[in-house]
Design a protein around this nucleic acid. Sequence first.
DNA 1: TCGTATATTGTTATAATATAACGTTATGTA
DNA 2: TACATAACGTTATATTATAACAATATACGA
Lengths: 132, 132
Amino acid sequence: MQKQQYLSKNQKIVLEHVEKANQPLKAYSILYNVQKKGLKAPLQVYRALDKLVEIGKIHKIESRNAFVACKNSNCVVSNATAFSICESCEKVTEINNSKLSKYLSNFEDNSGMKYSKYNLEFFGLCKKCKNK
Amino acid sequence: MQKQQYLSKNQKIVLEHVEKANQPLKAYSILYNVQKKGLKAPLQVYRALDKLVEIGKIHKIESRNAFVACKNSNCVVSNATAFSICESCEKVTEINNSKLSKYLSNFEDNSGMKYSKYNLEFFGLCKKCKNK
DNA sequence: TCGTATATTGTTATAATATAACGTTATGTA
DNA sequence: TACATAACGTTATATTATAACAATATACGA
Ligand SMILES: [Zn+2]
Ligand SMILES: [Zn+2]
Ligand SMILES: [Zn+2]
Ligand SMILES: [Zn+2]
């Protein structure tokens, strides 16, 4: 069986909802909002999310247990992700900075471990919140 | 009231247990193991962990929902953390690399956001697992 | 087009992680 | 002492995520 080319029904429903949001969503919030489209149980959402994360359409914000659509056209898979997170308003932005990604993708420490993947989360105050 | 100088009873118990482990522990695993020392409920463990994370004695591995003792003497607070995680054996190592931390602490993107904190998790295969 | 492997779905139940809310006790400071 | 803050203890509950099982759909080679 070939690598999946098209999204399945549930995967499409979940992805469309997450893409509309423009901000990270919690799995159960997704569930409540796609119930009218037929997804009734948590597992249906989690399974769609798992696949979408695997193929890089969605990223998980680990520190928030939330899911956001990829805004980065070259994120073919989620193997090199970086986000900025406002600790006040919780706004999350995907960082698309080629210097940073090159630096991190090439990073080696003295452990002899070669990294195939990373996730970086920056925290601070966004412009708006800084000026309050 | 002054900034806390000494750890409280529960904080000491939890920290000692996590330090002995040499690997990330789950909150409920900590709970089961410190019950003989008098901590009976999840909240007692979570509250101790919260404080220990706040003061930098313990870090949370966000992608694993697990807690590990700081191995980095200059991690006064957990505002700049980096870890390597083996996706096969789940071995976690705190990365102590001053170039990396300088690079990330000084990182600025075009969002106008100044970051006060970051957490970076690298994934891959450790030496042992690579040679299997 | 039949057989087979894999992916996806649907469903119920349950596991694992984390916090709310309440009252009490301890500790530091004036 | 009086006051403020931190830590504690306890019960209940919220939130996040997966196990287990059966059914259906899709891709692909023989
Ligand atoms: Zn992306
Ligand atoms: Zn903000
Ligand atoms: Zn540390
Ligand atoms: Zn390993």
